[in-house]
Design a protein around this nucleic acid. Structure first.
Lengths: 341, 341
DNA sequence: TTGTATGCGTTATCAC
DNA sequence: GTGATAACGCATACAA
């Protein structure tokens, strides 16, 4: 009763040849309706499905898309981005007959070797690359295999000409800076992620542009996304002779840490200091005060990425795309300030 | 330069036969040391790796383990369990040459059909099953294929004799009830998850046992894990003529909602009411008050599950196992109460 | 329309 | 120790 069943068994049971079975099952011509129905019925009844390895070998396609996770225990439990992305990806894959092949790496070099393996063994039809960095070794590798279907989830500036699905970080920076300006803030600080990360770099530039355009004072501190780093950064910023009146944190965890720290130092939020989080989350909603945050549809991104990946895997041309659905959710951690202060 | 490279090309380049290449690469006898080294060197230099589909077909093993995710947008962003589990799984898989094959389903019936497909097509060597329910159709299916390697992440009571990796829910209930008793609480309530879920059922029984043993009053309300449900449950519990002095919530989100609700109703936490969360998380840490919670090593569970799955996939006998690392993290949402009140 | 025969790339068997 | 050759299970071009 094991999966020892082959197309030949079904052919025999249905009283036809193996090619007839194959044609019937794959909806291809070359078989009469009568035979097709018969075959389909017999196959269904026997519970036969084509062996995936044999099919993959014959098709030269595994119908699976690769994703390499970065195994970082610290952020695992406080970061829902990856999970939401995966949900979006698999939802579309499911409908299109694809699977997500997942592996994890602890460092970039290992990740490169997994990619090499995938390219050499043909284990995946395409792959999705996350967290592209400046002068990323993975990008260098991919340049050697220009035909291999890869989608990069990063700004086009990082993608080096390869297909990318990006966020409108520039537009997001504009949303935040404009909002702060309208509220009367003239000195904004940003507690950013690691300097090497691609999207940090892009956000850095976007913020510089937006703040200088409005003639605002702007400080930026780079961290590792941890709450401890967020705390330290806020301590430094608020001990400046002229502290900022608004702080933008690159993730929700640091934003929450920032609020705690500010309060501990005697600042009222939002009366003395506005805090804004770049990433929205449940924590931003339920915190007291709730946290003004930039929101985007991550599941939707996963879905679009899946569609692009399938197109690429099947050889259809795919253009880079910029998502533009950032919106600022106004909550209680931000508010107006007297510009004359 | 594509993956059009086959073992024959390597054999030709190395001046040997294809079988020599296969032997050399797989470390099998039947080839001289000189030829082996030569072959290895040539293969390395050419960047050749055995095609995964061909290898899978020949080996009758894909070296991948299946996992089906339940696509539930609501809990996606507030639930880190799955992500931590995946991290643990892939970490071990990585070291053992396995991959995680991920698919998602929106309902049980679909999940059953994916499992059927996997069993019939041989796309995975084994699979991991989550969230087993009472009279789960997946368990019924698996009973038809007793040889297929499946690990169930659930209580042994749910696993119907199949191999399971379980939590010591009974011990956990003991930890909590004992703690509450020592603090003077004599009336405990529990805001539980859905009644149909396997671990809810197990926890229900465990709580009943523990509370009756100490002669405590005990109420239990079943919910759907949502904050709204948590809120409603607490409202009901606290409007009782004799409200409980301690409430245990089956997840962190409901515990946070419970604290908010209790305060709104005029109860002080923890002075009038202790709140305990079954699941620990970053939110429990940073909330004010921080939330006393039951903690367990989910990544570690993933790692053990991975080892068990690989053993099963490779035909080694595997016994069910009960993890016993629950610990209660004492924080500010719980405290002593005057038993005479 | 149907059945036969070959390729997909590896592994493994078996003469040499 | 080495090199042909037969599985593995499916798809498909080709012949009937």
């Amino acid at each position: 009763m094991k999966s020892k069943m082959t197309i030949a068994d079904v052919a025999k049971a249905a009283g036809v040849s193996s090619s007839a079975v194959s044609y019937a099952l794959n909806g291809k011509p070359g078989v009469s309706e009568k035979t097709r129905d018969k075959v389909l019925q017999v196959a269904e009844q026997m519970g036969w499905k084509p062996n995936s390895a044999a099919k993959a070998l014959s098709d030269a396609s595994t119908h699976s898309i690769g994703l390499i996770l970065t195994y970082d225990t610290d952020v695992l439990s406080v970061e829902s981005y990856t999970m939401e992305l995966i949900a979006g990806l698999t939802a579309v894959f499911e409908a299109q007959g694809y699977s997500l092949l997942l592996r994890s790496s602890s460092n970039r070099q290992h990740e490169v070797s997994i990619m090499k393996e995938w390219i050499a063994t043909g284990a995946v039809d395409a792959l999705l690359m996350l967290n592209v960095e400046l002068s990323d070794p993975r990008v260098a590798l991919l340049k050697q295999y220009p035909k291999f279907p890869v989608l990069m989830l990063c700004s086009v500036e990082m993608s080096d000409g390869m297909t990318a699905l990006s966020d409108n970080e520039k537009g997001a920076a504009h949303l935040i800076v404009d909002y702060c300006y309208e509220l009367g803030h003239r000195h904004i600080a940003r507690v950013a992620g690691p300097e090497m990360m691609g999207h940090t770099f892009v956000r850095d530039n976007a913020f510089l542009d937006e703040t200088s355009e409005l003639n605002l004072r702007y400080n930026c501190l780079h961290t590792d996304y941890s709450p401890a780093a967020g705390r330290r950064s806020v301590e430094r910023l608020l001990s400046l002779p002229n502290p900022p009146t608004a702080i933008v944190c690159d993730n929700d965890v640091m934003a929450l840490a920032a609020i705690r720290t500010a309060r501990r130092l005697g600042f009222k939020v939002p009366e003395d200091l506005s805090i804004i989080s770049w990433d929205d989350s449940f924590m931003c909603e339920i915190n007291e005060p709730s946290v003004t945050a930039l929101n985007r549809n991550v599941v939707g991104r996963g879905k679009r990425a899946a569609r692009m990946l399938i197109d690429m895997a099947e050889g259809r041309p795919v253009d880079s795309y910029v998502e533009d659905d950032y919106e600022l959710i106004f909550r209680d951690s931000s508010g107006p300030i007297d510009p004359k202060e």
